[in-house]
Design a protein around this nucleic acid. Structure first.
Lengths: 139, 139
DNA sequence: CTGTATCCTTAGGGATACTG
DNA sequence: CAGTATCCCTAAGGATACAG
């Protein structure tokens, strides 16, 4: 396969670093699926509404694993399968994703974000954060 | 010039929307420069450490203006020049950028983020947010 | 100085066939 | 099912020349 471009750092800026590390939109959509949609394996990611191609999915999973955001483990229920889940470094992206949800749902007239969730998030950011973090860590 | 790809929405997901709207890394670096580096005009953006090309800068500024994140105005000090600044929709990206700074400085061993700022941000997120927002709005 | 246009190369990625 | 490999085309973008 074509060699993936190694995530190359462009400067010492933390924003630039963040961007360069998790990479692009596809990677972030995978992270979203892990965080909020309870997806855990290849086939599920492939089903995403945005229609990721199988080669791209494969590539991004590998990259995310390399940079330590995602862990790949043998499925305890089925020794022949794998499950992906967020490493702590990935869970740490939660606040970032929540801010994306807030911005998106505020500025997109056609957003499909559940209103109750948004309202809760606006009112009690810390609480939502704590709860989701806990859930992700034990999953 | 080559027609820019119109930002195309991929789904109703707010995260996807956010990603599709402000676009890519280059756009976000411009926003960073507007937010934290006090840059206001073309030449200054061109100087960014990451080395954006002039055609890309031009393209991204246009796109950011189109989607209402950035405003382009005649420089009051020099009627022949322009200044760019964040529209409210752009200022709304502040929490997102702050989370990027936090994640980046936490996970990058070589980060250049000022430690005092990070500590303040961790302790008093709301305060920092309020202050920066105020500063951006009046600029 | 603030852009715009052109040229040209390469990485990204969709479609799809293939493998264990 | 869970990926990997190949094909092939397009868009992204660096370099740079040009324009107001």
């Amino acid at each position: 396969m074509r060699k993936r471009t190694p995530a190359k750092r462009r400067s010492g800026c933390p924003i630039s670093f963040t961007l360069d590390t998790f990479g692009d939109k596809w990677a972030l959509l995978i992270i979203r699926d892990l965080m909020f949609k309870g997806k855990r394996n290849y086939g599920e990611f492939l089903q995403s509404e945005e229609g990721i191609a199988t080669n791209i999915l494969s590539d991004r999973l590998k990259r995310l694993e390399e940079v330590g955001i995602v862990l790949k483990e043998v499925d305890p229920d089925n020794r022949r399968k794998f499950v992906y889940r967020l490493a702590d470094k990935g869970v740490d992206l939660l606040p970032l994703l929540l801010e994306m949800i807030l911005w998106g749902s505020k500025h997109d007239p056609k957003t499909e974000a559940p209103k109750e969730f948004i309202r809760r998030l606006e009112r009690d950011r810390e609480g939502v954060l704590r709860e989701l973090r806990k859930r992700l860590r034990r999953s």
